[in-house]
Write a protein that binds this DNA or RNA. Structure first.
Ligand SMILES: [Mn+2]
Ligand SMILES: [Mn+2]
Ligand SMILES: [Mn+2]
Ligand SMILES: [Mn+2]
Lengths: 244, 244
DNA sequence: CTTATATTTTAGTCTTGCCTAAACTGTAAA
DNA sequence: TTTACAGTTTAGGCAAGACTAAAATATAAG
């Protein structure tokens, strides 16, 4: 007696997890446009690939059911695509937190490493890591970490540029990819979890001057002030992580 | 005034790290044959790919300077190939150690996860991890971890099958890829770091009976006995890691 | 010395993911 | 309403890495 076992390995999508390329494209669309349509150009710029490559991938994402794509009109994520994006973002931010808290990385270096690792770890690994980290709510940059079920709280924070002199505020998030910017702010401990007092918000040139917990004053140019997001100290602290 | 910057990105080896495929092939050759030549068939079996794919990769490895390849005669690693293999093995074993000690994985599950992660982590990550782990000498299965400089101590251990009744020995290493085997031994705490007393080595069928630290006896069949490597309890303990 | 068999290689394809160059489209300004 | 141009798509290629089927080779057995 003999058997022939026929497995249909011809459908690469059904079971297999998306490749790292596919994942990065989906994540890029999510980061650029959320639920809206992301343009070919923007995705190309973010991923450092040619526009032609993006057009090609938009078509494939549609095949895979991860995005809807209309020629000349960009691609927007389907529910499945959003789910996949959030899964990667959760991994990415948990990994960043681990790198900073347990391996001694500085917060400007965690992103690059996480960008690769997010595609290599399993769901098992991710949840065990979350456990080990005590289920943090935010990553080192203050970005909220999506829950395991794909939930992500919407948040409306104001930037330092939108505050007024006299207010005491808590730094919640720093939104900037540049290592120089992160390094500058990190060295001065202007990081999530710290609170500062707003001394001056100068309309003329957008410079915001703040006084840190040690009484030291820092003058931040418009772009810097727009990258630092805060909340009133009165509101509850939403699990800030303290980078180096 | 303008400049045109010409980068020769046409040489993919010079700077770029080997792909995970290339890495796995190099590692397979090392694991199968060490410094000798590994056959097409053996590598194909270990990596679950066709022989034709292996022949193709052998040629590429030679192009890359990672292996020497002679038709019909298999491939052997060059110094560069050995270096690359050891680099991956170091990562793999450190990652396994981390998974077991810090994420609560069981020792039969660590291999699969490490097999993917070894290609995604940076040297930076690897050395920081080694630091965090306290520079362990062995992984959860008792395999020695290559040093950062590519050094790996040669070792000559005997298996349980080669011991004699009456000896008290320390389990140093368990050489078996099967999850069932690892699970069986793990549940009985017959793992690296534990010591046992050899009760009987039966020539007839190769069954070895040992008494563990709690006085419980275990009869191990020939294949199991050949998978468990030990050293005399009198010799120095070489940094054993204790799996679950 | 021949032959059978296991192993290996060759030949021909396929998919993924990237590229450049050329053609096309949508839209905002003239 | 035409036009210019930024943005997009198409066309054509390429490299990595896998596969199957067919041909070639080494070697062990007769
Ligand atoms: Mn990524
Ligand atoms: Mn982040
Ligand atoms: Mn691997
Ligand atoms: Mn191991």
């Amino acid at each position: 007696m003999s058997f022939i076992l026929l497995l249909d390995m011809s459908d690469p999508l059904a079971t297999l997890p998306p490749s790292s390329s596919v994942g990065d494209y989906v994540k890029a669309i999510w980061e650029i446009a959320g639920s809206e349509a992301a343009s070919t150009k923007d995705v190309a710029a973010r991923l450092s690939v040619s526009s032609a490559s993006v057009t090609n991938m938009f078509g494939r994402l549609q095949e895979m059911g991860l995005a809807e794509y209309e020629r000349y009109r960009g691609a927007s994520l389907t529910a499945a695509g959003r789910r996949e994006a959030l899964r990667l973002v959760r991994r990415h931010r948990l990994i960043e937190t681990f790198l900073l808290e347990h391996l001694g990385y500085s917060w400007q270096d965690v992103h690059e490493e996480a960008e690769r690792l997010e595609h290599a770890v399993s769901d098992e690994f991710t949840e065990r890591l979350a456990d080990m980290l005590g289920h943090p709510g935010r990553d080192p940059h203050g970005d909220p970490i999506p829950a395991a079920d794909g939930t992500l709280a919407v948040e409306s924070l104001k930037s330092l540029g939108e505050t007024e002199a006299g207010q005491r505020v808590l730094i919640v998030k720093v939104k900037d990819d540049s290592a120089q910017v992160l390094n500058y702010l990190g060295e001065r401990s202007l990081v999530p979890g710290r609170s500062v007092k707003v001394r001056e918000v100068r309309a003329l040139d957008g410079v915001v001057t703040v006084e840190d917990e040690g009484g030291v004053e820092h003058a931040l140019g418009e772009s810097l002030a727009r990258a630092v997001f805060v909340q009133s100290t009165l509101e509850g602290v939403q699990d800030p992580v303290a980078p180096a």
